[in-house]
Amino acid sequence: MSFLIGDGMTGGYGSADILHDCTIAVEKGEIAVIVGPNGAGKSTAMKAVFGMLPLRLGHVRLEGEDITALTPQARVAKGMAFVPQTQNVFTSLTVQENLEMGAYLRRDDIRGTMEQVFDLFPILGEKRRQPAGELSGGQRQQVAVGRALMTQPSVLMLDEPTAGVSPIVMDELFDRIIEVARTGIAILMVEQNARQALNIADRGYVLVQGENRYTDTGEALLANPDVRRSFLGG
């Protein structure tokens, strides 16, 4: 059984379903990537796993425990961390305050975790006293990921972490994400840059119209001629 699984998720915002029997799972220390065309329900699937979408059918289980009925906040307390695609930092707060707010639920000493984040993203250490709103796009994404890591989560969920950053920054961000996964954290992410994302993925999900179309290792999906033709541009 998977560490975190959204099993047979069906649901949507109004009367029409966006997800149809969609299953997403991720193991500890693994990177799972959700790719697919625009409007395939990638972000929606992610939100469903995090409890931001009402499910009509299906379950979400974390370490075997059914968490389908929990609010997103309660899931944070259970060790899940979510980085939204936009507005994912407190722009008027300094980098350090952003990280402190990430650890709001923790009552113990957070300095160690903060040092780990600064080791992972050295630029944040340099700019710890600067308001996050003054940073570049790539640096903001680092703040956003850092904030999420402050809870010492067991699952890190990223909604298009490389949206709007340059290719160099993207490569670097992916390197950091691999590093995070190596510490034993399960990583689930939605990506627009399908080819690069599948490159680092242990497991890939290709969604089309809210359904699982292909599910395999990242390598196998990259090698699959159908997937290449339809979703990766040849």
Binding site: P84, F90, S92, M101
Partner: peptide
């Protein structure tokens, strides 16, 4: 203070504040 920063965070970005457990 922790509460003061949480107030500023909540004022800055309500959704993210909720995601942070405030």
């Amino acid at each position: 203070t922790r509460m003061g920063k949480a107030m500023r965070a909540y004022s800055d970005n309500e959704d993210l504040a909720l995601l942070s457990g405030i």
